[in-house]
């Protein structure tokens, strides 16, 4: 076919979506079973759960790589119009919006706990009876190092903000600067600097993850700060954990982009994938900034 596709490209039938749905199905039942393995009172088989989960994850990996490959091939074949390009961009932006709302819920939970729930539990304002009737010895403070009920073992110490957290903040900020450097280098066509800056960004991101893992083990081993050590640990690990997950995702995306940079796939005019990934990295960095301020410092 020699005619250029001005019309919107409606793909033919595709088996990737149904594969993806099956993958999600296996992940969901595998995960639910796996969780039950570690709960008292269930006789769920560990092997079977891991098998189910493994099948699900493999199917999803197969689906994602296959689907992306398909899309890249279609793109190379010139099937996509400028309008199609806009669909992808807008789709991605609305996906980001949903991510923002997901983090907003956890931040909202943190603010609610700190500003309302804990002070009320401590008898503030019109709630003296709450204090007297529930846990009279409770003192509302943040970070919470004395849980109301001994059912939850309290953490011994707060994570100091000026140690690893500050280091990690610096690492991520620097990676924000290096990816901006890469971005600039791409725009002005300096390939060597682009690759170098991308490499630095990935290295910084991975170092961040390494320190984060170290900090978690420090919290578990030395500080007694765990997921089940009351609300301080719960909010801390949920917020930083989901952020860490996004750093991991971002790093994988950056590695893919670096490979494509090395192959010379991007030009000063055509580099949407680069810019989108770069933006995503900035987004992850800003979420960290919010965490640093609201979880570690204030």
């Amino acid at each position: 076919m020699t005619t250029k596709h001005e019309r919107y490209y409606v793909p033919a039938q595709s088996y990737w979506p149904i594969v993806g749905a099956v993958g999600l199905f296996f992940i969901a039942i595998g995960l639910a079973n796996l969780i039950h393995v570690f709960q008292p009172g269930y006789d769920t088989s560990l092997t079977k759960s891991i098998l189910l989960l493994g099948v699900g994850v493999s199917v999803i990996i197969f689906m994602v790589s296959g689907w992306f490959n398909h899309v890249i091939k279609e793109n190379m074949a010139g099937l996509y119009s400028a309008q199609m390009d806009r669909s992808f961009r807008q789709g991605m932006i609305w996906f980001i919006f949903s991510e923002v709302m997901f983090f907003a819920a956890f931040f909202g939970a943190l603010f609610y706990i700190r500003m309302f729930a804990l002070p009320w539990l401590g008898g503030e304002g019109s709630k003296p009876l709450t204090l007297d009737l529930l846990w009279p010895n409770f003192v509302a403070e943040w970070p919470l190092l004395n849980n109301p009920d001994p059912k939850y073992a309290s953490p011994n110490e707060v994570i100091p903000w000026h140690g690893i957290p500050l280091l990690n903040t610096t690492l991520l900020l620097t990676s924000g600067a290096t990816i901006t450097w890469a971005h600039w280098a791409l725009k002005v066509g300096k390939r060597l600097q682009l690759n170098l800056a991308m490499f630095c960004t990935i290295a910084l991101g991975l170092t961040f993850l390494g320190f984060q893992i170290y900090e978690y083990s420090h919290a578990y081993m030395d500080l007694g700060l765990t997921l089940d050590s009351g609300i301080y640990g719960s909010t801390f690990f949920m917020l930083t954990g989901f952020h860490g997950l996004h750093v991991t995702l971002g790093s994988i995306m950056l590695i893919v982009i670096l490979v494509r940079c090395l192959r010379g796939s991007f030009t000063a005019e055509n580099h949407f994938a680069f810019e989108a990934t770069a933006w995503y990295w900035h987004f992850v960095d800003v979420v960290w900034l919010g965490l640093f301020i609201f979880v570690y410092i204030l």
């Binding site: 059912k151 939850y152 050590s229 009351g230």
Partner: peptide, 8 residues
């Protein structure tokens, strides 16, 4: 975790 449990 104790998001919804006052005991924690």
């Amino acid at each position: 975790t104790s998001f919804f449990d006052a005991a924690g």
